Amino acid sequence: MSEPATSRSTLIAAALIFAGMLLGGYFLPDIVNFVAQFSPWLAVGVGILFVLAVFFVFWLRARYQRRHER
């Protein structure tokens, strides 16, 4: 009986993560170009932080699922 609630929660989380990645990826070039006016190294750092943030979100989601699986 808890299967539909779990599936719904998973779908909502996946949709939010995907929307965040899509929105971040859409604005990332503009942000990097703006930051590159001040420092190209800082612009590289912004790009790296975006990629790491994607993995960080997936890591947090997996950790949450493991804790609430019991």
Rank of each mutant, 00 (worst) to 15 (best):
L60S: 10
A53I: 03
L23W: 12
F56Y: 10
L52P: 07
L42C: 07
F56Q: 01
A36E: 14
T10A: 14
M1K: 08
A13Q: 01
L60E: 07
E69S: 14
Q65H: 14
H68E: 07
R66Q: 13
V57L: 05
G45N: 03
I12E: 01
G47H: 12
P40Q: 14
L42P: 03
Q37F: 06
Y64A: 08
F34S: 10
F38D: 06
S7V: 12
R61P: 02
R8N: 04
R70T: 06
V35T: 03
L11H: 00
A53F: 08
G45E: 00
A5C: 04
T10Y: 03
Q65A: 15
A62D: 05
L60Q: 13
E69N: 14
S2D: 08
Q37C: 08
H68Q: 12
F55D: 00
G45V: 11
V57G: 04
G20S: 02
A14Y: 03
W59P: 02
G24V: 08
G47W: 12
I12T: 05
F27G: 00
Y26Q: 09
T10Q: 11
L22E: 00
A53D: 06
Y26D: 07
V35P: 04
F27M: 04
G25V: 10
F55A: 08
F38Q: 10
A5N: 07
D30P: 01
A36M: 07
Q65C: 02
S2I: 13
Y26I: 15
I17G: 02
S39E: 00
F58W: 11
D30A: 12
S39C: 05
I48L: 15
A5W: 12
T6R: 15
V32A: 14
F50Y: 13
V32E: 12
P4Y: 07
F34P: 03
I31V: 15
F55W: 11
E3L: 14
A19G: 00
A43S: 13
A43D: 05
D30R: 09
P29Q: 08
T10G: 06
F34R: 09
S7N: 11
W59F: 12
W59M: 04
I31Q: 00
L22C: 04
L52R: 05
